[in-house]
């Protein structure tokens, strides 16, 4: 059993008041309480960006790594100990800029990780430059003439790259996000949740109001096992309507990708080294 107070650290969040990170943090903690995630069964990894501060505010063992690199770290953790629930917190710059290559290959590998992308569509910790998710034309500190480039579509990229659970959430809907995080962790394969997270300090365009006018939930008649349909719906982002929910959820996950026993339990004492050495005679 995990209670809210178990998760509390001496450090209160230092995000800007009203920041979308706060509700992602809240939703994760709520899911942890509901599911009993704690220091006996769970590990967290984050990259660098405003999102990364979160590890200081959740009392579950974690690794705060380098900008762009949380995915390979998490992969190493999962391969070493498949019993752990492994959560990755990453930003859009972290995940698609600095770590873009890792994102594609992590999707291909489809290990059993849950990746929560704090997607504020710009670089916030460095005070507001364009990111791979910044809409074309938006002015930022690094694109005062307007962003010249097309943004990445995280869900489409995840689906075609091989992730088997692909979802979008809005940071303003904590209840729905809590539920998604729980379902993502239950999925036996890579789970990607792109969370639309308004940055109230630097992104004056993608605000709560902006999202509230455009979001809607994929209905109960939507079939998330249809990959082509999932890909088609993921592209709606490019229009003015933004669907939320689970776009793709495939049970066709290859079993046995991770060793079934924690590597630390494989003692080297019983290794027959003589046999190995004799191969070189």
């Amino acid at each position: 059993m995990t209670s809210m107070s178990d998760l509390k650290t001496p450090h209160p969040p230092n995000w800007c008041p009203g920041c979308g990170n706060i509700s992602i943090w809240g939703a994760f903690k709520q899911a942890a309480v509901n599911q009993g995630w704690d220091n006996t069964n769970t590990a967290l990894v984050a990259g660098i960006g405003c999102h990364g501060h979160m590890l200081n505010f959740v009392k579950i063992t974690s690794l705060e790594g380098l900008h762009g690199r949380p995915l390979p770290v998490a992969t190493g953790i999962k391969l070493a100990n498949q019993k752990l629930n492994v959560f990755v917190f990453t930003g859009d710059g972290d995940c698609f800029g600095e770590g873009g290559n890792h994102f594609i290959h992590t999707c291909r590998r489809n290990h059993d990780l849950t990746v929560i992308i704090h997607d504020n569509s710009l670089y916030a910790l460095t005070t507001g430059q364009t990111s791979p998710r910044t809409p074309q034309g938006l002015t930022t500190k690094s694109t005062p003439q307007g962003n010249p480039d097309e943004p990445i579509n995280p869900l489409s990229l995840a689906i075609i790259s091989g992730a088997t659970f692909v979802a979008r959430a809005y940071a303003g809907d904590m209840e729905e996000l809590t539920d998604l995080i729980t379902k993502a962790n239950e999925h036996k394969g890579l789970s990607i949740i792109d969370v639309l997270q308004p940055c109230i300090s630097f992104n004056k365009s993608l605000t709560h109001d902006f999202y509230r006018e455009r979001i809607y939930y994929l209905g109960s008649d939507y079939d998330p096992t249809d990959k082509d349909e999932a890909l088609a719906r993921s592209r709606e982002l490019e229009s003015d309507r933004i669907p939320l929910g689970i776009f793709y959820n495939s049970d066709a996950v290859e079993k046995g990708k991770e060793p079934q026993k924690a590597l630390i339990e494989n003692e080297a004492a019983d290794r027959d080294l003589d046999k190995l050495f004799r191969k070189y005679i």
């Binding site: 590990a43 990894v45 690794l63 790594g65 380098l66 690199r69 390979p72 770290v73 998490a74 992969t75 190493g76 953790i77 999962k78 391969l79 070493a80 100990n81 752990l84 924690a262 590597l263 630390i264």
Partner: peptide, 10 residues
Amino acid sequence: NMAIGASFAG
């Protein structure tokens, strides 16, 4: 980074 992750996990 994978090696570091695995080492972190023991």
